[in-house]
Design a binder for these strands. Structure first.
Lengths: 131, 131
DNA sequence: TAAGTGTATTAAGTGATATAATACACTTAA
DNA sequence: TTAAGTGTATTATATCACTTAATACACTTA
């Protein structure tokens, strides 16, 4: 899986998910991890599209979702910038995490696993010694 | 969200995911949780389709995947039965769980969370009243 | 003015999903 | 033997999400 570096971020696309979702997730991840600084400019729609060899409309879709989440601010004619408001970043981080946790626990419960065993499986997966 | 009882199992379909995936997941969950006994017969393709008001081909697709996973055995002319081999059920249970755990941890890591905080968030989520 | 921004529109193609209508081989029970 | 109920296969059709393509427009900056 080829990894492409654009504007301080790394992208790696495949066919497992919609392209716009992958772009969205990878930018969001870069922001959450602090790999790209608050207030920084991210690549233009056209630049990123060209680098990733996908259509500008597809990049647009990802960028629009980022702005809806208030993770970015767009200035017409200038470009798209990461928000400078760290509170907004944190809010999104926890909101997305909360959803992931909910889905995870729901899935495990659906498989008949309960708290102690879920914790045990998590520890095993991390390579930790168990109980 | 309407809940429909068919052949000892409960089904609840919506538009958030493909129908065949929802049917597949809900039968798998019933088996994993032991809500339906090993060796039991599950509803016929036509019966389930009629009860859920979906196309028989859609049910077929779910049933074929269940058989590929060896969670069910089909006897031509008779019907579809839950496997009697508890080892197979457990294998699938842990395989699916492992995938869920991997995806969950990967998502949380992508958001910049590490082990201690992930555990903390899990504890918080369980302390809340949900569902 | 020219180049680079974000944004909008229209058109087209592809693939997954779902439905519909039929048909066939098999099993069971009447 | 027959009829009804199984799983299974096939073909056709429709819809929708996703993606690409080609333009066009308004704005900002150098």
């Amino acid at each position: 899986m080829e990894e492409i570096r654009v504007g301080g971020m790394y992208f790696s696309l495949d066919l497992s998910l919609p392209l716009y979702e992958q772009v969205l997730e990878q930018v969001r991840s870069s922001i959450a991890k602090g790999e790209i600084a608050l207030g920084d400019k991210i690549p233009s729609v056209r630049e990123l599209a060209q680098a990733l060899k996908i259509n500008p409309n597809t990049v647009m879709r990802a960028y629009q979702e980022l702005e809806r989440e208030q993770l970015t601010e767009t200035r017409r004619g200038q470009g798209t910038y990461i928000t400078s408001d760290i509170a907004k970043v944190d809010l999104i981080r926890y909101r997305v995490a909360d959803k992931a946790i909910e889905e995870f626990l729901s899935k495990m419960t659906g498989l008949g696993f309960e708290t102690p065993e879920i914790d045990k499986l998590l520890r095993i997966k991390r390579g930790e010694a168990h109980e």
